[in-house]
Design a binder for these strands. Structure first.
Lengths: 360, 360
DNA sequence: CTGTTAGCGCGTTCAT
DNA sequence: ATGAACGCGCTAACAG
C-alpha cells in the first residue's frame, strides 16, 4: 500500500492544544488548583475559580481524555457490541442506551459483530483495550473465555435480548422461551395444529434457539410435534420471508400458522401472500417476534410479540451506571414482552373449537 | 491478607490487570522490548518475541488504551454524531462506517443529537474530550463555533448527507437540491402541476431545507410556484404522513403529486391512501426521498430517491482513515443518488401531455 | 537488536 | 484553600 521508507512515514501528531498547565499559568495558579477547579469547583475560592474559567475559555482548553483517564482510572466510556447497526431492531435499544448514558456523563463505543462470534470476540477485546468501563452485549451464548476476559478486568456487563434467572450474568432482557410459548399457545387456541416456523440462523444465536425451543415446548404441551420440514432457517430478510412462505404454501400439507422469529420474515410472508392471493388469516395465520413500527400498518396488520427494546437499552444503561457509581444494585429483573394481536392471525381453517380435538 | 511473599505485595496493591511491565518481567526482558514486541514485532528477535507473547498470554495482558494514547498521541477512536440511532436511516451509514473503520483498526464513539443543535454541540465537545481523532457529522448547518472547536484540535471531519462544491469542508454526501429537482422534474414530466410536500422540520435541518429548495427551484423552472398551503412540516413519522395526506386530500384543490422529504411520510401517505380508498397513482402520485427496504414491497411500490447511505459511511471512513494515516487525499466527490421509479407515481389526473399548458 | 530514560497531561496525595 | 511532587502505563528517542 504505502511506502515502507522509514523517513517518509508520516505520523499523526496532534498539535499541542492548550494543556491544563497552560491554563494554570495563564490564570496564575498552580496546576493542582486548576485541576481542582474543574473537578471539584467548590474547593476553590470563587475569585481564582473565575480566573481559571476565564483562562479555559480564552485558551479554548479541552481536557485531554487519555491523560485524565490514566490519572483517574476512569474513562467514562461504555462499550456496546451489537449483531448489527443497519436496522431499527438493535438501534431501538442502542438509541435509548446511549441517551441514558449520555445523561449520566458516559460515552458509548459501538461495534457490530455481524452475527459472527469471532468478530464479536475481537470487538470486545478492542473495546476492553480502549478502556471501556462496562459492556453491553446481545445474547448470552458465547465462548466462556470471553466472559473470563471481561471478568479479568472486573468490569460490569449486561446481556440484552435474553434473560435467565441464574446469577451468572446481569440481564437486561426478556424471556424468549416464554414469549414463544405464549404466542404459540395463542395460535393453538385458535385451532392451529400444523405450524411453520421461519427462524433466524440458529447457530450462535441463542435468541433464535430459545424462540424455537419455546415453540416446540408449547406444541409438546399439547402433544403436538413441530414437523422438521416446516422449520426454515434463514438470514433475516424480507426476501427470505417471501421465499419460505412460497415454499410452505407449496407443501402438500402447508402449515396453517406461521411463526416468524423476526419481523422481516413476517413482512415477507405477508407481502408474498398478497402477491400469491393467499388470504391471511383465512388461509394461513402469520405471527412474529419483534413488533416494529410497520406491524400495525402492513396488510393485514401483523400479530406480533412486542420486545422491549427501549426498555432494554435504558435498563442496561441504568444498571451499568449504578454499578459504576458504586451503588449496590440488584440484578435487573426480566422485562415484559407483550403479544399484540392484530389481524394477521385468526382461527385455523376448518378449525374445531377449542376443546374438540383436531381432525386427523 | 496472609502468606504474602514479599514479591507479590506490590502487585497486590495494583488494580486488576497485568501491565506491560509485568509482562516484561515475566519474560525477562525490558519494558521497552516488550512494547516493541507488540507494536513492531519484526524489530524483536524471534526467541524473545515468543517469550513475551507467552507472557502476554499467561498473564492475560490487555494493553491500557489510555496510557497508550497518552504516550503515542493516538487514540484510534473516531466519533460520530447522528441525529438518531433508532431507525434504519442513519444506521445504514453507521454500520458500514463502523465496519470500514474497524477493519482499519479504529473504534467508533457514537452519540445521537436527536436533531437538537445544542445536544449535538455537547456531544461533539465530549467526543473531542474523549480524544477522538476524527468526526463524522450529518449535515453542514451548525454554529460556526463548533467548526472552530473542531479545527482548533486540528482533527479531520466529514459531513455526510449533504454535499457542496466548496472547499470548506469534506463531504461524504450527495446533492439534495439536485436530487429534489430531478424528482420534481420527473413528476412534472408526468403532467403534475400542483404539488404537495411533506417535509421534515426545516429548522436546523439543512437536508430538509435543501430538498424543499430543490422542489421549489424545479417548479420555478417551469414557472410554477409551490403553494405554501401545500407544504407541511412534520416530525418524521408514519403517523404524520398519514395525517398530512388526509389533510391534503381534504383540500379544495388537492395536490396531484406529493413529494415526501423522508420515507416515513410516504409510507404514511400510502397507508392512508389505501385506507381512504384514494387510488395511487391514479388520483395522486406519491414519491419520496430515502429509498428504504420497504419501498419495493409496499403497495403500490414506492417511487423514491435512493440515498447512498452505505456509500456515505464507507467513503467517510475511508477518507478519515486516509487523512489520519497522513496520506494526501483529495476531498471526496459527491455521491450519486438515483431515482427509482416504481408504481406510486403516474400521470397527473386529467393531465395534458407535456408541452400543452395545464388547464387553469 | 536491546535496555535506559524521559515524558505524555492530569488527578491526587501530601504538606503548607 | 493552595502548591509541589509523584505516578498512572505506555511509547519513543537515545545510547549501547
Amino acid at each position: 500500500m504505502t511506502g515502507e521508507d522509514n523517513e517518509s512515514v508520516v505520523k499523526y501528531l496532534r498539535p499541542p492544544g492548550a494543556t491544563l498547565e497552560d491554563v494554570a499559568d495563564a490564570a496564575g495558579v498552580s496546576l493542582a488548583t486548576a485541576s481542582r477547579c474543574l473537578n471539584h469547583p467548590d474547593s476553590v475560592r470563587a475569585e481564582k475559580r473565575q480566573r481559571i474559567l476565564d483562562a479555559v475559555e480564552r485558551l479554548h482548553y479541552v481536557p485531554h481524555g487519555a491523560a485524565r483517564a490514566l490519572a483517574s482510572k476512569r474513562t467514562r466510556m461504555i462499550g456496546a457490541v451489537l449483531p448489527s447497526l443497519d436496522n431499527a431492531l438493535f438501534g431501538g435499544a442502542l438509541g435509548p442506551f446511549q441517551k441514558t448514558l449520555a445523561a449520566a456523563g458516559y460515552s458509548v463505543l459501538i461495534a457490530s459483530s455481524d452475527y459472527d462470534p469471532d468478530l464479536e470476540r475481537t470487538h470486545i477485546r478492542n473495546l476492553l483495550e480502549s478502556g471501556v468501563e462496562a459492556l453491553l452485549l446481545v445474547g448470552a451464548l458465547r465462548d466462556p473465555a470471553i466472559y473470563q476476559l471481561i471478568d479479568a478486568k472486573h468490569i460490569p456487563y449486561v446481556l440484552s435480548w435474553v434473560y435467565e434467572k441464574d446469577q451468572h450474568h446481569a440481564y437486561a432482557g426478556f424471556d424468549n422461551i416464554g414469549a414463544a410459548i405464549h404466542l404459540t399457545d395463542y395460535l393453538m387456541m385458535l385451532g392451529h395444529r400444523r405450524f411453520g416456523v421461519i427462524s433466524g440462523i440458529i447457530e450462535d444465536n441463542d435468541r433464535a434457539q430459545l424462540r424455537l425451543q419455546g415453540i416446540r415446548s408449547a406444541l409438546n404441551g399439547k402433544s403436538l410435534d413441530l414437523d422438521p420440514d416446516c422449520v426454515f432457517e434463514r438470514q433475516f430478510s424480507v426476501e427470505d420471508g417471501r421465499e419460505v412462505f412460497r415454499l410452505m404454501m407449496s407443501m402438500s400439507k402447508p402449515p396453517t400458522a406461521i411463526v416468524c422469529g423476526a419481523a422481516p420474515f413476517a413482512y415477507g410472508a405477508l407481502f408474498e401472500a398478497a402477491e400469491m392471493g393467499v388470504r391471511v388469516p383465512d388461509a394461513v395465520s402469520v405471527a412474529s417476534f419483534d413488533d416494529m413500527w410497520l406491524a400495525p400498518h402492513i396488510s393485514p396488520p401483523l400479530t406480533a410479540v412486542r420486545t422491549p427494546r427501549r426498555e432494554m437499552g435504558e435498563q442496561a444503561a441504568r444498571y451499568l451506571v449504578a454499578k459504576l457509581e458504586g451503588e449496590r444494585v440488584a440484578l435487573p429483573r426480566a422485562l415484559e414482552t407483550k403479544l399484540i394481536v392484530r389481524k394477521s392471525t385468526g382461527p385455523a381453517p376448518f378449525a374445531n373449537l377449542p376443546g374438540s380435538p383436531p381432525p386427523e
